[in-house]
Design a protein around this nucleic acid. Sequence first.
DNA 1: GACCAGGCACATC
DNA 2: GATGTGCATGGT
Length: 209
Amino acid sequence: MYHELFRAFGPQHWWPGETPLEVIVGAILTQNTAWGNVERAIANLKKARLLSVEGLAGAPPRTLARLVRPSGYFNQKAVKLRAFTDFLRDEYGGSLRRMARERTPALRRKLLAVHGIGPETADSILLYAFGRRVFVVDAYTARIFSRHGCVEARTPYAEIQRYLTERVPRSVRLYNEFHALIVRAGKEFCRKTPHCDACPLKIFYKKYV
DNA sequence: GACCAGGCACATC
DNA sequence: GATGTGCATGGT
């Protein structure tokens, strides 16, 4: 499936963010939200010169909420951004470099304890901000692999993740590209109803489903 | 005007 | 532990 997707779409160059902090902010803002709206919110933060650890930590919550408004759930997301900078300050003295020295299992555990960071957001941060070998599962992943008969519908996050890590070669590079391609395919072909004839994965669909 | 989008926390059973 | 609900904007 990976090779079919790569052949069809080519490299996706993920994450679409320039710095680890920008990846983290994007991961929080994109929760159940179209990426285009996240881009507007990030642009607002940049324009206000608040897309920094100090900026996010120091800005009034109402200001943050106003700036991230285009990404939806803006009151909650303002709280979540602040929860992250609080965590970064308390746990690593506000230093992403120090945070980057933490070992993956401990870091994942700590991230999951932060308000607003669940499994997908934690794993996106681990893989795309810190280059850790963690397979990110999202709504598209669940949909595509359940529609291909690999897992049951509504299989829990951890189980889908286990299914994939047991089968996919364990490479950060591959995890990065595969997940990005899954999102690409999900957006274009697997939204409300399957469009299997045009989808690069159609041969798998026809063979197994 | 309905439906959807790269979830998560919280309440309730 | 499973299931339901609120959160909210912008595109199709």
